[in-house]
Design a protein around this nucleic acid. Structure first.
Lengths: 380, 380
DNA sequence: TTGTTTGTTAGTAACTTTAACTAACTAACG
DNA sequence: CGTTAGTTAGTTAAAGTTACTAACAAACAA
């Protein structure tokens, strides 16, 4: 079969899937399509394996023939999602409902060549696929850098010091399978949208705080990447413009110096002369006033950045995730909110949900799966 | 006829319109549709009056029958666009190509009641329509406030001290014509997108600087309003967070105090004790160092806000317009850019076009026309 | 005249609808 | 318990819509 469903087929698959168990008669009523054409499409979908006749239902109290209840066959195709991180690669294999069938981890730390990187990606994908390759709908990849989602071209990945790689084509032609690539944080946002804490959200800003800080945007229900694939690179935002530093050139790029793993570590080292890891910093928050002050300053700037995001974009939800944002979510939120409550008027703040990234370190790989799912199967 | 064209009809109308003069054979080639179905659709569209057989073209050098060249009949429907401002109302009547057929101005200053406002809107629309009402496709309105574009509901218009008016329904039921309503700045952005300086732009941020300051966003080619219809209310953005003022509560809302007509007037009064109009401030920029300093400070904050917008949204174009932004565009840009060049790295700044709102004070009304055009006729 | 191009006509295929049908079931009643 | 009426599920048949291909006439250059 071709994976391009017609509008009516899509509609019926979507309904069968969301309703769980539904009869042809109900499908006809819900779609407004005639009974014959529903039967027609259903038998086609059954032939393809997309849906199955699961069981016989009950007649209504008024009598009548018992309905044949249809059910979505989530395992008739599989999707691979890949999170290419600066330290590790995670590849997952899921069915069409996003259930994780297999998971593979690889070390990527220290990789600096295009060949080594593509090789490890090939390996991860190869190893994670435990089903017939013909059953794979596609591979969705999130990479730490600027990418063109339409072509799968990767412009720049600072973590690997690599530029201008047509990664989409490379992976796609190697496996003979559709491949989609986008920025990891953006993909993470998509993951939370479809399988995480942002289900049914239209306008989402996901802030990933790890070594650095970046945002992924879902606007009007779709990925927003900007005109040069740089949207959400808020590591460069400015929240500290004042008399002391306005004279120095090129201030662009100091937001993440205030609040990110790296930023906090450097500030602790500069101001206190301590060589602490991010985890140690958080562990010592309540023990050291000095560390807490640095952390509070960071929260203040984080709050300013978020306030500006709220002002400009009026999102429905803001998710904090990433290595630091996910693990230290409660701590960050506890000290972040008081600042936000001062900066943002309550009638605006109350409309915005704050949430922890539910998917944790699987956010990007799950988002990769969503990328393929939404573009090659069904946009839910 | 119904105004809902099928996908193929839309395609053909779009082609006829953009190509100017085109034959059925060419349409068939360009759309990939067969010649018969093109002839079929064309004759239907001719019947409706949407296109006409304009003239006979030339055969190619190799001979062959001369083509009948088709042309778009832009006057087969008309659209009304309305700019409801705090001081004045502008209503325009255009054909489908956006050519302005008629224009009406009304004074709205001092209006504080719902009835007075709807009455003046009714009058403006009534007076501007000089064609058969049956030829009107719809009325698109931009109002200074928060609105729901889907329902035409107006939540709050500070300029008139009015809240919670179902203006869309009110106007629509009065004239029996489709009505769409959105925020004036957003509508202005749409106007510049379709008929102004942002043609073919996908991601646009229009900054309207007048009495206050607001932004209108077009993202992924569509209006972006946010989840609570507050997107782009950058008057509340923060660019001046520092030790001096961080202690005061509720800082949210000081961006436009730095750069807007009102903001500049107030600063000049506070700091210099002068009661100058915005125009007088600009006229005296090169004569008074004190005024210039205030202006420069304003530009600095404007630049910071724009830098943050660039960081977050990576737009393709930034338009300055509005009473002040349009009239003082050159002056503002001259002093704004040096700040931006310091704040934003050149490799990023060079990708972003800055432009004056080409439509001037017709931006909102033209945008209102686009609103109807795009939603009830053709999204170009 | 020959080759080329435009636009139409005729016939066909794909998809969808309406109307009518069969199959299967509940409820009620004698 | 068997029969009948009424209801519901899903299929079949006929007809309409929308597109396509094939074939052709008209118009024109060389």
């Amino acid at each position: 079969m071709s994976y391009t469903l017609s509008a009516n087929e899509e509609n019926i698959v979507r309904l069968v899937r969301t309703r769980g168990l539904i009869s042809r008669a109900d499908l006809s009523r819900e779609t407004g399509l005639s009974k014959p054409i529903v039967s027609n499409i259903v038998s086609k979908l059954i032939n393809e394996g997309a849906i199955i006749e699961k069981e016989i239902g009950m007649s209504s109290e008024k009598g009548g023939k018992k309905p044949i209840l249809l059910s979505f066959a989530s395992t008739y195709k599989y999707i691979v999602g890949v999170d290419v991180g600066g330290n590790k690669l995670i590849a997952i294999l899921t069915d069409l409902d996003g259930n994780i069938i297999n998971k593979v981890r690889k070390v990527t730390k220290g990789i600096k060549s295009k060949n080594a990187l593509t090789e490890i990606i090939f390996q991860g994908i190869e190893e994670v696929i435990t089903v017939d390759k013909a059953m794979i709908l596609g591979v969705g990849i999130g990479v730490p850098g600027t990418t063109d989602i339409k072509t799968g071209f990767v412009y720049y990945m600072p973590a690997f010091e690599l530029s201008d790689i047509p990664l989409g084509e490379i992976v796609s032609s190697h496996f003979g399978i559709p491949v989609m690539i986008s920025n990891d944080v953006t993909v993470n946002a998509l993951g939370e949208l479809s399988k995480g804490s942002a289900r049914n959200i239209k306008d989402l800003c996901l802030i990933a705080i790890g070594t650095g800080t970046g945002a992924g945007l879902i606007l009007n229900g779709s990925i927003y990447s900007g005109s040069h694939n740089m949207a959400g690179e808020i590591g460069y935002m400015i929240t500290d413009w004042n008399k002391e530093n306005k004279s120095r050139n090129r201030t662009f790029g100091n937001y993440e110096s205030w609040f990110s793993g790296n930023g906090l570590e450097i500030k602790v080292k500069e101001k206190l002369g301590l060589n602490l890891t991010t985890k140690e910093i958080f562990d010592n928050l309540d023990k050291s006033r000095d560390i807490k002050e640095i952390f509070l300053q960071g929260c203040e700037h984080l709050a300013l950045g978020i306030a500006n995001i709220i002002t400009l974009l009026d999102p429905q939800m803001i998710i904090l995730t990433g290595g630091v944002g996910y693990n230290q979510y409660d701590m960050i939120l506890r000290y972040l909110m008081p600042f936000l409550e001062v900066i943002v008027p309550p009638e605006i703040l109350k409309n915005i949900s704050f949430s922890r990234g539910e998917l944790g370190d699987l956010g990007v790989s799950v988002g990769g799966v969503s990328l393929i799912h939404d573009n090659y199967f069904l946009k839910m």
